[in-house]
């Protein structure tokens, strides 16, 4: 099988509208293992490729909750158990005074969860990826738009998939080495 030595077939487009249409067409054709590459975010592209869930908001919420509980718990423990100080007879558990630090720590943990969560879900940092083998792929961060159907897709067939991509308004279709 020739397709096992390939990462996939990549088509190049001129503008985001063509890429979006191509992604929708490929999904309708039955392709699932594919990805699109663009120099800027294209609204609706991930959905067109069949991505349903984005777990990031939940991760950030959990990060924020952990930060909130950690900070308040720590302050409460310091002030009531570990190191109680009598300041003018005020209660040890002076919770209103704990709010600023609790708030800041909530933001800190949520922000770290957003950044680290995004990088982890995206698998970054990633030193090597086959798509960079495509000769003109450097333009994916410049002014060109790419759609890559991967060879691991069950419907992938070198001849049929190439014909499908060439029938889209693509500039050229290239084979991507793994």
């Amino acid at each position: 099988m020739e397709s096992t030595r390939l990462y996939g077939l990549m088509a190049e487009f001129d503008n985001p509208a063509d890429l979006l249409a191509a992604a929708r067409a490929a999904y309708a054709e039955g392709y699932r293992k594919m990805d699109a590459y663009s120099p800027m975010p294209v609204h609706g592209l991930a959905e067109a490729l069949g991505v349903q869930k984005n777990p990031l908001p939940l991760i950030v919420l959990l990060g924020g909750l952990v930060g909130c509980l950690t900070a308040f718990g720590m302050l409460w423990a310091i002030e009531t158990i570990i190191y109680p100080l009598n300041v003018g007879g005020r209660p040890f558990n002076s919770w209103p005074a704990f709010i600023p630090i609790t708030f800041e720590t909530t933001i800190l943990f949520a922000a770290l969860a957003a950044v680290l969560g995004m990088l982890a879900l995206n698998g970054l940092p990633q030193p090597y990826h086959p798509v960079f083998n495509a000769p003109r792929f450097a333009l994916a961060t410049h002014n060109r738009f790419f759609l890559c159907i991967e060879a691991s897709d069950p419907k992938f067939d070198l001849v049929a998939t190439r014909r499908f991509l060439e029938n889209l308004p693509s500039r050229e279709v290239v084979e991507v080495a793994p």
Partner: peptide, 13 residues
């Protein structure tokens, strides 16, 4: 860090 402009990455980004 190996950013390649993938549509799925852009969505999470």
């Amino acid at each position: 860090m190996g950013w390649r402009g993938s549509a799925i990455h852009w969505q999470r980004y």
